[in-house]
Write a protein that binds this DNA or RNA. Structure first.
Lengths: 338, 338
DNA sequence: TTGTATGCGTTATCAT
DNA sequence: ATGATAACGCATACAA
């Protein structure tokens, strides 16, 4: 069955297309009686305005794009939840695209979305994305962007992040206070914004404790998650004095658990582990994992809120509009002082 | 900066709009030389065709819709991964909408998507959705739908599911073989397709063991996840002879762990637990959780593949096109025979 | 209060 | 080989 258009309604009601259009948009220059007739038929026939025709005229697509590395990740799925909710409140739709951590994918997605598919973009960058030139298309088209969590630091727009430096410092201090003297740091990328900041916090904490920073103790995880456990095992074998692990992402904390299990190392007796994580069930792990939890849902909401300000009130987003939220450390048995 | 349109390219090249259009679409009636000129300028100016204008002419939006209860759930996020991948392979976009388990939301989302926003829909129904009449809009508009995991059983279209009855039977048998004699079943809904089938498998297994089915041992979880732990605690207190729990979804298995911990019950000594789950880290739980794992990623891919067959080859999907995949039981310590 | 005409960006059809 | 024109569905400016 062909979709119900204004034309169909107009023919049926012996009205002009424009009269029907205005009736449905509740314009003041249409008789109440006519509005009633039109609305009755529209709902009877399940009329739904073609959003693409509207956007072709105006240039609001009522759609925002989310570009993230993966959805299969507690942090991102919680963030999406927050974003989707705000979008719904604003009567917008959400287009989701995954980069799978590949900068080229990220660039191509942006290029396509910029072609008029969305009114705004929420972006958390791929692990190895470096130059931000592929974002120029968005700027040129006047499509606002808000970064969340993983940001490009040199871009003149708003970001929503957490206090990664402070959290990195705090996590490391937590291990040192628990008695660790040789703390390894597992990161996903030392060029990525969050990777850099968390690492800086780690380094600063070591310094304050009078401990030397050793590059060898910093392990960069592999994109292929299956490879991380053996990498960590190798590190623990090479440096058996390691008594603490600070994992900058959930996945690396889990790989650390597996590595310790495979090597017969006990947590927290032999090695203490702390990790960034949004696992609700951290307390059900063996042993319960000490976590730094980011307010993922709030981050999503906040980022979306900023984006809608830009879209609907037509304000230009500036770095000064950026928001920083706090993460929370939950101490559990994986870092217990013995 | 205004977006680059065909008109802009045409003016710049002293060509007609239609010539430019055909050049970009690589039509045979355009001189190679001209094609080259056009393509060069297009890529120089980052020309991107306006997808909404194309879809207005044709009626392919190059977009599919995913409608699911939540994204914050391992099963669904893995499925999305599979779907997004197939969509990308077909050069399609993915619109994602969450029902938050509310049938009204589901209906309203469908109504809106049917208004020409997507070329096809992948749907996993909300927990309490009953009537499927809100899907008629899609049928009327000729928009194909593929259900995955949670399906409407009375609908003449294809579904992608797992062998839920067999899995329910197998899970229950697993507990009985481990020595359990009073097995509770935790479900999210006994009207939902997957809930019904898993329950039927549970009932059949009890029967084959000569055990009576007791309605009291079947607990329906609450949509508000926080309420489930106390509900399970209450059940365990009321029926202290319960020595096995079969949780039909991951969340309820986790709540069972918490309930047991709160009551001081040991797993698997006092109570054995098995649950449907896509937690990669089930083996890191305390104790490691015996799981029935659905091939979530494959389900997503398969559902998307079917949908694209319908969209691109214009075939009408029938129940006979449905696919059933197998889940896998991984036995771990939570159901160890002692 | 309602109708007519126009244009958004694209593509198909029919000229030239 | 290229150009002119019309149409998709909608919303606006203007006419009646």
């Amino acid at each position: 069955m062909p979709p119900v258009s204004l034309k169909v309604l107009a023919r049926e009601l012996n009205l002009s297309v424009s009269a029907v259009s205005r009736a449905l948009n509740d314009r003041s220059d249409i008789a109440q009686h006519t509005k009633d007739r039109v609305r009755a038929l529209a709902s009877k026939l399940n009329y739904e305005p073609n959003p693409y025709a509207s956007s072709l005229r105006g240039t609001k697509t009522k759609t925002i794009g989310i570009i993230i590395p993966a959805v299969h990740n507690h942090f991102f799925s919680l963030a999406i939840n927050g974003i989707e909710e705000v979008a719904r409140e604003n009567d917008f739709h959400v287009l989701i695209s995954l980069t799978h951590e590949e900068p080229e994918q990220e660039a191509s997605i942006i290029q396509v979305l910029a072609g008029g598919r969305v009114d705004g973009v929420l972006l958390s960058t791929a692990r190895n994305s470096q130059a931000s030139t592929h974002l120029n298309v968005l700027r040129d088209r006047g499509i606002p962007v808000v970064f969340f969590d993983r940001v490009y630091e040199d871009l003149p727009t708003a970001t929503v992040t957490t206090d990664d430096y402070a959290s990195g410092y705090q996590a490391t201090r937590h291990l040192l206070e628990a008695g660790c003297r040789t703390v390894a740091h597992l990161t996903i990328s030392d060029t990525l914004s969050i990777g850099k900041r968390r690492l800086q916090g780690y380094v600063a904490a070591l310094q304050d404790w009078g401990l030397a920073y050793e590059e060898e103790l910093v392990l960069q995880g592999h994109a292929n998650e299956a490879l991380n456990t053996p990498l960590i095992e190798a590190l623990l074998r090479k440096r058996p004095e390691i008594d603490g692990i600070f994992a900058s992402v959930e996945m690396l904390a889990m790989s650390s658990y597996e590595a310790c299990r495979n090597l017969g190392l006990s947590i927290p007796e032999d090695v203490k582990v702390i990790g960034f994580s949004n696992l609700e069930i951290a307390s059900l792990l063996n042993p319960p994992l000490t976590t730094i939890t980011q307010p993922a849902y709030a981050i999503g909401r906040e980022a979306a809120r900023l984006l809608f300000r830009a879209i609907q009130e037509n304000v230009h987003l500036l770095p000064a509009d950026s928001v920083e939220l706090k993460s929370e450390l939950s101490s559990r048995r994986s870092t217990a002082r013995l």
